[in-house]
């Protein structure tokens, strides 16, 4: 199980990296943490002719905060995010998510943006991105463009990133002081990709839900929100009944694909169960009676 040969590039500036991508396009792959790319190559399921390693470029592992919005650079590792005070304070949902990502020995190398760019529908970060409405910045040698969360994930392991672009930034909008959140998932084994998981955010003012996001992973070909369920919550008081009603909508709306680890019926059921659990866990932190 050894990767096929490739041309290895280790540029020292982002511009050099972008120039390489401009030159090699589809034949090139960006290497950040490598936790998805390297096993795919070892299995010879991925065989880029060129690998562009971002590891030698300074300044890509920054976590910054501005007006409450938190931005992460492309070399921010999951474990770095897990320990970041800035994230703990300003992006509590991201902080909540990190311990769910694989195992520590993966998190120490794997990058947050790499997980987003890979777009695995069973991974946590794409769901966090769509739940929060994060903004993604794709950079190529011809410039930068921002992509809204809702536009980014296009299909199974397929995103809006072009082959000459690098995902250089994700910015999570300022976290409202009235928001609560949770990440819940069920996997076959601890640390596995989820059978189904849900990222929940609720904005609650005066005991009324004013905004809600329910973003599912492992439930479709991409991370997916169920707006009908979200809408059902908005305007209501957070309660077990309201949560169960949302769960019923979710279980009806989603039709997750079956695989050897779980049937469609199972995953539908689980999506419903996790909706209630996720909503309950989200409000637990503020003690709203469920």
């Amino acid at each position: 199980m050894k990767a096929p040969p490739f041309i290895y590039h280790r540029p020292e500036t982002l511009d050099d990296a972008l120039a390489l991508l401009a030159e090699h396009g589809d034949e090139a792959k960006v290497l950040a943490g490598g936790q998805s790319l390297i096993p795919l190559m070892a299995l010879r399921m991925g065989r880029p002719a060129h690998v562009v390693d971002l590891g030698a470029i300074d300044g890509l592992a920054e976590i910054t905060e501005a007006d409450g919005a938190v931005s992460l650079g492309p070399l921010v590792r999951h474990e770095q995010a897990n320990r970041s005070d800035v994230i703990a304070q300003h992006a509590p949902l991201v902080a909540q998510t990190m311990p769910h990502v694989a195992h520590r020995a993966i998190r120490t190398q794997g990058t947050v943006l790499g997980s987003i760019a890979h777009g695995d529908p069973a991974a946590e970060m794409p769901a966090v991105v769509i739940a929060t409405g994060a903004t993604l910045t794709a950079t190529s040698s011809s410039g930068e463009r921002t992509i809204a969360a809702a536009e980014f994930f296009e299909g199974y392991l397929d995103t809006a990133l072009r082959s000459d672009e690098i995902l250089t930034d994700v910015t999570f909008p300022a976290w409202p002081s009235t928001a609560v959140s949770s990440v819940v998932e069920v996997a076959r084994r601890h640390g596995d990709y989820a059978l189904v998981g849900v990222v929940t955010t609720l904005d609650i003012t005066d005991d009324i839900v004013t905004d809600a996001a329910l973003a599912y992973f492992g439930a479709a070909s991409t991370a997916i929100r169920v707006s009908a369920a979200e809408q059902s919550l908005i305007g209501s008081s957070p309660s077990r009944e309201a949560f169960d009603a949302a769960a019923t909508i979710v279980a009806a709306e989603l039709a997750p694909p079956a695989d050897i680890h779980g049937s469609t019926a199972y995953r539908k059921h689980l999506a419903g169960v996790l909706t209630t659990r996720g909503l309950t866990a989200a409000v637990d932190s503020i003690g709203v009676p469920a």
Partner: peptide, 16 residues
């Protein structure tokens, strides 16, 4: 008896 099978046995879900 993976989770799917458990819930099928308990009648919580039906087989696909």
């Amino acid at each position: 008896l993976p989770p799917t099978k458990i819930l099928e046995l308990a009648g919580v879900i039906s087989p696909d």
